[in-house]
Protein backbone atom coordinates (compact mmCIF):
# COMPACT_ATOMS: atom_id res chain seq x y z
CA UNK A 1 0.00 0.00 0.00
CA UNK A 2 1.20 3.50 -0.78
CA UNK A 3 1.75 5.85 2.11
CA UNK A 4 -0.52 8.88 2.39
CA UNK A 5 0.78 12.12 0.99
CA UNK A 6 -0.66 14.07 3.86
CA UNK A 7 -1.87 12.74 7.16
CA UNK A 8 -3.88 14.88 9.56
CA UNK A 9 -4.49 13.75 13.13
CA UNK A 10 -6.57 15.31 15.86
CA UNK A 11 -6.41 18.79 14.36
CA UNK A 12 -7.98 21.43 16.62
CA UNK A 13 -8.21 25.15 16.05
CA UNK A 14 -9.41 27.48 18.79
CA UNK A 15 -10.12 31.15 18.10
CA UNK A 16 -10.47 33.49 21.07
CA UNK A 17 -13.36 35.93 20.50
CA UNK A 18 -15.04 38.50 22.76
CA UNK A 19 -17.95 36.06 23.23
CA UNK A 20 -15.73 33.15 24.27
CA UNK A 21 -13.37 30.68 22.61
CA UNK A 22 -14.63 29.55 19.24
CA UNK A 23 -13.66 25.94 18.64
CA UNK A 24 -13.62 26.17 14.84
CA UNK A 25 -11.95 22.82 14.07
CA UNK A 26 -12.60 19.98 16.48
CA UNK A 27 -10.48 16.87 16.18
CA UNK A 28 -10.22 16.48 12.42
CA UNK A 29 -8.51 13.33 11.05
CA UNK A 30 -7.92 12.38 7.44
CA UNK A 31 -5.38 11.01 4.97
CA UNK A 32 -4.78 12.30 1.48
CA UNK A 33 -3.27 9.83 -0.99
CA UNK A 34 -0.80 10.87 -3.72
CA UNK A 35 -2.67 12.16 -6.77
CA UNK A 36 -5.99 12.21 -4.97
CA UNK A 37 -8.56 15.01 -5.27
CA UNK A 38 -10.40 15.36 -1.98
CA UNK A 39 -13.48 17.58 -1.80
CA UNK A 40 -14.22 19.39 1.45
CA UNK A 41 -17.86 20.48 1.69
CA UNK A 42 -20.20 21.84 4.34
CA UNK A 43 -22.30 24.91 5.09
CA UNK A 44 -20.92 28.39 5.60
CA UNK A 45 -19.03 28.64 8.90
CA UNK A 46 -18.51 24.88 9.29
CA UNK A 47 -14.72 25.34 9.39
CA UNK A 48 -13.54 24.49 5.88
CA UNK A 49 -11.27 27.50 5.36
CA UNK A 50 -9.91 27.42 8.91
CA UNK A 51 -9.00 23.74 8.41
CA UNK A 52 -7.28 24.39 5.10
CA UNK A 53 -5.25 27.29 6.45
CA UNK A 54 -4.08 25.32 9.44
CA UNK A 55 -2.56 22.62 7.22
CA UNK A 56 0.24 25.04 6.36
CA UNK A 57 0.08 26.82 9.72
CA UNK A 58 -1.26 30.09 8.40
CA UNK A 59 -3.02 31.04 11.64
CA UNK A 60 -1.24 33.44 13.97
CA UNK A 61 -1.60 33.74 17.74
CA UNK A 62 -3.89 34.15 19.59
CA UNK A 63 -5.43 31.51 17.32
CA UNK A 64 -4.32 28.13 18.66
CA UNK A 65 -3.62 25.01 16.63
CA UNK A 66 -2.98 21.54 18.04
CA UNK A 67 -2.60 18.09 16.48
CA UNK A 68 -0.30 16.87 13.73
CA UNK A 69 -0.09 17.43 9.99
CA UNK A 70 2.33 14.85 8.59
CA UNK A 71 3.84 15.76 5.23
CA UNK A 72 7.03 14.33 3.76
CA UNK A 73 8.03 12.75 7.06
CA UNK A 74 7.58 15.98 9.06
CA UNK A 75 4.91 17.39 11.30
CA UNK A 76 4.25 20.76 9.69
CA UNK A 77 2.63 22.08 12.85
CA UNK A 78 5.95 21.61 14.66
CA UNK A 79 8.38 22.32 11.79
CA UNK A 80 10.78 25.28 11.87
CA UNK A 81 9.66 28.52 10.26
CA UNK A 82 12.38 28.16 7.63
CA UNK A 83 11.21 24.68 6.69
CA UNK A 84 7.62 25.85 6.51
CA UNK A 85 8.52 28.79 4.27
CA UNK A 86 10.28 26.50 1.80
CA UNK A 87 7.28 24.17 1.65
CA UNK A 88 4.65 26.90 1.37
CA UNK A 89 4.21 28.18 -2.14
CA UNK A 90 6.61 25.47 -3.33
CA UNK A 91 5.62 21.85 -2.73
CA UNK A 92 2.34 23.02 -1.20
CA UNK A 93 0.44 25.87 -2.86
CA UNK A 94 -2.75 27.50 -1.77
CA UNK A 95 -5.50 29.28 -3.69
CA UNK A 96 -7.36 31.61 -1.34
CA UNK A 97 -11.08 32.23 -1.14
CA UNK A 98 -10.65 36.00 -1.65
CA UNK A 99 -8.12 36.51 -4.45
CA UNK A 100 -7.94 40.28 -3.95
CA UNK A 101 -6.68 39.96 -0.39
CA UNK A 102 -4.05 37.40 -1.40
CA UNK A 103 -2.64 39.26 -4.40
CA UNK A 104 -0.11 42.04 -3.93
CA UNK A 105 -1.69 45.24 -5.29
CA UNK A 106 1.63 46.99 -6.04
CA UNK A 107 3.22 44.21 -8.09
CA UNK A 108 2.16 43.28 -11.61
CA UNK A 109 0.66 39.87 -12.18
CA UNK A 110 3.79 38.91 -14.15
CA UNK A 111 6.06 39.94 -11.24
CA UNK A 112 4.03 37.90 -8.80
CA UNK A 113 4.16 34.76 -10.91
CA UNK A 114 7.85 35.48 -11.60
CA UNK A 115 8.59 35.68 -7.89
CA UNK A 116 7.35 32.14 -7.39
CA UNK A 117 9.19 30.88 -10.46
CA UNK A 118 12.47 32.35 -9.19
CA UNK A 119 12.10 31.09 -5.65
CA UNK A 120 10.89 27.59 -6.38
CA UNK A 121 11.96 26.82 -9.96
CA UNK A 122 15.12 28.92 -10.25
CA UNK A 123 13.79 30.63 -13.40
CA UNK A 124 14.73 34.23 -14.12
CA UNK A 125 14.40 36.94 -16.77
CA UNK A 126 13.13 35.91 -20.15
CA UNK A 127 12.60 32.25 -19.26
CA UNK A 128 10.51 33.28 -16.27
CA UNK A 129 8.38 35.65 -18.38
CA UNK A 130 7.81 32.94 -20.99
CA UNK A 131 6.74 30.46 -18.35
CA UNK A 132 4.52 33.06 -16.64
CA UNK A 133 2.71 33.77 -19.91
CA UNK A 134 2.29 30.03 -20.43
CA UNK A 135 0.74 29.69 -16.97
CA UNK A 136 -1.72 32.53 -17.56
CA UNK A 137 -2.61 30.99 -20.89
CA UNK A 138 -3.28 27.64 -19.17
CA UNK A 139 -5.87 29.32 -16.95
CA UNK A 140 -7.63 30.72 -20.00
CA UNK A 141 -6.63 34.38 -19.82
CA UNK A 142 -6.57 35.80 -23.36
CA UNK A 143 -3.50 37.64 -24.69
CA UNK A 144 -1.50 36.39 -21.68
CA UNK A 145 1.78 38.01 -22.70
CA UNK A 146 0.20 41.46 -22.75
CA UNK A 147 -1.60 40.91 -19.44
CA UNK A 148 1.60 40.09 -17.52
CA UNK A 149 2.29 43.80 -17.03
CA UNK A 150 -1.18 44.49 -15.58
CA UNK A 151 -1.76 45.10 -11.89
CA UNK A 152 -4.38 43.01 -10.06
CA UNK A 153 -6.89 45.89 -10.03
CA UNK A 154 -6.85 45.90 -13.83
CA UNK A 155 -8.20 42.34 -13.83
CA UNK A 156 -11.86 41.38 -13.43
CA UNK A 157 -12.85 39.25 -10.42
CA UNK A 158 -12.73 36.05 -12.41
CA UNK A 159 -9.37 36.95 -13.98
CA UNK A 160 -7.89 37.65 -10.54
CA UNK A 161 -8.94 34.24 -9.42
CA UNK A 162 -7.23 32.77 -12.46
CA UNK A 163 -4.09 34.82 -11.77
CA UNK A 164 -4.08 33.32 -8.25
CA UNK A 165 -4.31 29.87 -9.79
CA UNK A 166 -1.39 30.65 -12.13
CA UNK A 167 0.73 31.80 -9.16
CA UNK A 168 -0.19 28.70 -7.19
CA UNK A 169 0.73 26.41 -10.07
CA UNK A 170 4.01 28.18 -10.92
CA UNK A 171 6.00 26.00 -8.51
CA UNK A 172 4.43 22.80 -9.89
CA UNK A 173 3.27 21.88 -6.41
CA UNK A 174 2.84 18.36 -5.10
CA UNK A 175 -0.15 19.44 -3.07
CA UNK A 176 -2.67 22.13 -3.97
CA UNK A 177 -4.99 23.56 -1.33
CA UNK A 178 -7.80 25.26 -3.24
CA UNK A 179 -10.41 27.27 -1.31
CA UNK A 180 -13.43 27.91 -3.57
CA UNK A 181 -11.14 28.32 -6.62
CA UNK A 182 -13.95 28.70 -9.15
CA UNK A 183 -16.67 30.47 -7.19
CA UNK A 184 -16.32 33.82 -8.96
CA UNK A 185 -16.11 32.22 -12.38
CA UNK A 186 -18.67 31.49 -15.09
CA UNK A 187 -19.61 27.89 -15.60
CA UNK A 188 -17.82 27.72 -18.92
CA UNK A 189 -14.57 29.11 -17.46
CA UNK A 190 -15.05 27.04 -14.31
CA UNK A 191 -15.24 23.96 -16.47
CA UNK A 192 -11.97 24.94 -18.16
CA UNK A 193 -10.16 25.47 -14.80
CA UNK A 194 -11.39 22.23 -13.26
CA UNK A 195 -10.21 20.31 -16.31
CA UNK A 196 -6.84 22.01 -15.97
CA UNK A 197 -6.55 20.90 -12.34
CA UNK A 198 -7.42 17.33 -13.29
CA UNK A 199 -4.84 17.37 -16.07
CA UNK A 200 -2.11 18.66 -13.73
CA UNK A 201 -3.03 15.98 -11.25
CA UNK A 202 -2.23 13.44 -13.98
CA UNK A 203 0.90 15.18 -15.24
CA UNK A 204 2.48 16.22 -11.94
CA UNK A 205 0.86 13.59 -9.80
CA UNK A 206 -0.34 16.49 -7.68
CA UNK A 207 -2.91 15.92 -4.92
CA UNK A 208 -5.63 18.47 -4.33
CA UNK A 209 -7.91 19.47 -1.48
CA UNK A 210 -10.81 21.32 -3.03
CA UNK A 211 -13.06 23.37 -0.76
CA UNK A 212 -16.34 24.27 -2.40
CA UNK A 213 -20.02 24.64 -1.65
CA UNK A 214 -20.94 23.58 -5.19
CA UNK A 215 -21.89 19.91 -5.01
CA UNK A 216 -21.89 19.69 -8.81
CA UNK A 217 -18.22 20.68 -8.84
CA UNK A 218 -17.49 17.98 -6.27
CA UNK A 219 -19.33 15.34 -8.29
CA UNK A 220 -17.44 16.26 -11.44
CA UNK A 221 -13.96 16.68 -9.97
CA UNK A 222 -13.28 14.82 -6.73
CA UNK A 223 -12.27 11.23 -5.99
CA UNK A 224 -13.29 11.39 -2.38
CA UNK A 225 -15.37 13.77 -0.29
CA UNK A 226 -15.15 14.89 3.33
CA UNK A 227 -18.29 16.51 4.75
CA UNK A 228 -17.77 19.03 7.52
CA UNK A 229 -20.33 20.08 10.10
CA UNK A 230 -19.79 22.21 13.19
CA UNK A 231 -15.98 21.99 12.98
CA UNK A 232 -15.88 18.20 12.54
CA UNK A 233 -15.66 15.77 9.68
CA UNK A 234 -18.94 13.91 9.88
CA UNK A 235 -18.65 11.75 6.78
CA UNK A 236 -15.94 10.76 4.30
CA UNK A 237 -16.53 8.53 1.29
CA UNK A 238 -15.71 7.92 -2.34
CA UNK A 239 -17.55 10.43 -4.50
CA UNK A 240 -19.89 7.87 -6.08
CA UNK A 241 -20.86 6.32 -2.76
CA UNK A 242 -21.49 9.68 -1.17
CA UNK A 243 -23.77 10.97 -3.91
CA UNK A 244 -25.68 7.71 -4.31
CA UNK A 245 -26.04 6.59 -0.70
CA UNK A 246 -25.01 9.11 1.97
CA UNK A 247 -24.41 7.62 5.40
CA UNK A 248 -24.83 10.67 7.59
CA UNK A 249 -28.12 12.46 8.20
CA UNK A 250 -26.51 15.85 7.46
CA UNK A 251 -25.17 14.72 4.08
CA UNK A 252 -28.56 13.24 3.27
CA UNK A 253 -30.25 16.52 4.22
CA UNK A 254 -27.81 18.49 2.09
CA UNK A 255 -28.43 16.37 -1.01
CA UNK A 256 -32.18 16.32 -0.40
CA UNK A 257 -32.39 20.09 -0.28
CA UNK A 258 -31.23 20.32 -3.91
CA UNK A 259 -33.88 20.56 -6.61
CA UNK A 260 -34.28 17.17 -8.26
CA UNK A 261 -35.60 16.02 -11.61
CA UNK A 262 -39.34 15.91 -12.31
CA UNK A 263 -40.22 18.08 -9.33
CA UNK A 264 -40.89 21.26 -11.22
CA UNK A 265 -41.98 24.05 -8.85
CA UNK A 266 -42.61 21.67 -5.95
CA UNK A 267 -41.46 22.85 -2.52
CA UNK A 268 -37.83 21.90 -1.81
CA UNK A 269 -36.79 20.14 1.38
CA UNK A 270 -34.50 22.44 3.36
CA UNK A 271 -32.77 21.33 6.56
CA UNK A 272 -34.64 23.16 9.33
CA UNK A 273 -32.80 25.44 11.75
CA UNK A 274 -29.37 27.04 11.48
CA UNK A 275 -25.71 26.23 12.08
CA UNK A 276 -24.52 25.45 15.62
CA UNK A 277 -22.75 28.04 17.77
CA UNK A 278 -19.13 26.89 17.91
CA UNK A 279 -18.60 28.74 21.20
CA UNK A 280 -21.08 26.64 23.12
CA UNK A 281 -21.93 23.32 21.53
CA UNK A 282 -24.53 21.11 23.18
CA UNK A 283 -23.33 17.66 24.27
CA UNK A 284 -23.93 14.88 21.75
CA UNK A 285 -24.18 15.04 17.98
CA UNK A 286 -23.88 18.69 16.83
CA UNK A 287 -26.51 18.05 14.15
CA UNK A 288 -29.07 16.68 16.63
CA UNK A 289 -31.16 19.89 17.00
CA UNK A 290 -31.83 19.88 13.23
CA UNK A 291 -31.91 16.15 12.57
CA UNK A 292 -35.05 14.28 11.49
CA UNK A 293 -33.65 10.95 12.71
CA UNK A 294 -32.44 12.01 16.14
CA UNK A 295 -32.95 9.70 19.12
CA UNK A 296 -31.99 9.97 22.77
CA UNK A 297 -28.75 8.09 22.07
CA UNK A 298 -27.60 10.91 19.76
CA UNK A 299 -27.72 13.41 22.59
CA UNK A 300 -25.64 11.58 25.16
CA UNK A 301 -22.14 11.78 23.67
CA UNK A 302 -20.67 13.13 20.44
CA UNK A 303 -20.57 10.20 17.98
CA UNK A 304 -17.02 9.57 16.69
CA UNK A 305 -16.14 9.20 13.00
CA UNK A 306 -16.07 5.42 12.50
CA UNK A 307 -15.45 3.15 9.53
CA UNK A 308 -18.94 1.95 8.62
CA UNK A 309 -18.03 0.19 5.36
CA UNK A 310 -14.67 -0.34 3.63
CA UNK A 311 -13.28 3.14 2.94
CA UNK A 312 -16.39 4.87 4.31
CA UNK A 313 -16.49 6.78 7.56
CA UNK A 314 -19.49 8.28 9.32
CA UNK A 315 -20.19 9.97 12.63
CA UNK A 316 -23.90 9.19 12.54
CA UNK A 317 -25.26 6.69 15.01
CA UNK A 318 -28.15 5.85 12.70
CA UNK A 319 -26.15 5.71 9.45
CA UNK A 320 -27.66 2.32 8.64
CA UNK A 321 -31.29 3.34 9.10
CA UNK A 322 -31.33 6.40 6.85
CA UNK A 323 -33.81 6.30 3.97
CA UNK A 324 -32.54 5.98 0.40
CA UNK A 325 -31.89 9.20 -1.44
CA UNK A 326 -34.46 10.13 -4.05
CA UNK A 327 -33.03 10.75 -7.46
CA UNK A 328 -31.40 14.14 -7.34
CA UNK A 329 -28.85 12.94 -9.79
CA UNK A 330 -30.53 13.00 -13.18
CA UNK A 331 -30.98 16.64 -13.90
CA UNK A 332 -29.50 19.60 -15.75
CA UNK A 333 -27.59 18.44 -18.75
CA UNK A 334 -27.90 17.89 -22.44
Amino acid sequence: MTAPHLSVRDLNVRIPTPGGVLHAVRGVNFDLMPGEVLGLVGESGSGKSVTLRSLIRLHRPPIQMTGTVEYGGQNLLAASDAKLRSVRGGQISMIFQEPMSALNPVLTVGEQIGENLREHKGLRGRAAQERAAELLDLTGIPSPRARLSDYPHQFSGGMRQRAMIAIALASEPQLLLADEPTTALDVTIQDQILRLLLRLREELHMSVILVTHDLGVVAQTCDRVAVMYGGRLVETAGVNDLFHAPKHAYTLGLLQSLPGAGEHRRPLQPIPGGPPDLRSLPPGCPFAPRCAYVTEACRTGEPPLLEVAPGRFSACIHYDELPALKSTLEEVGV
Binding site: T188, G216, L329
Partner: peptide
Protein backbone atom coordinates in the same frame (compact mmCIF):
# COMPACT_ATOMS: atom_id res chain seq x y z
CA UNK B 1 -25.94 24.20 -25.56
CA UNK B 2 -22.45 25.16 -24.37
CA UNK B 3 -23.77 26.63 -21.13
CA UNK B 4 -25.70 23.47 -20.28
CA UNK B 5 -22.79 21.23 -21.20
CA UNK B 6 -20.48 23.17 -18.86
CA UNK B 7 -22.85 23.08 -15.89
CA UNK B 8 -21.53 20.41 -13.53
CA UNK B 9 -24.03 17.60 -13.08
CA UNK B 10 -24.54 15.97 -9.70
CA UNK B 11 -23.87 12.49 -10.97
CA UNK B 12 -20.21 11.53 -10.49
CA UNK B 13 -20.62 8.63 -12.89
CA UNK B 14 -21.48 11.03 -15.71
CA UNK B 15 -18.33 13.01 -16.33
CA UNK B 16 -17.86 14.52 -19.73
CA UNK B 17 -14.53 14.27 -21.51
CA UNK B 18 -14.26 17.23 -23.86
CA UNK B 19 -14.34 20.85 -22.76
CA UNK B 20 -17.78 22.26 -23.43
CA UNK B 21 -16.53 25.49 -24.89
CA UNK B 22 -13.21 27.15 -25.49
CA UNK B 23 -12.21 30.76 -25.83
CA UNK B 24 -12.81 33.74 -23.63
CA UNK B 25 -15.90 35.89 -23.36
Amino acid sequence: QALLAAAPTLDPSRRTAAPAITGEL
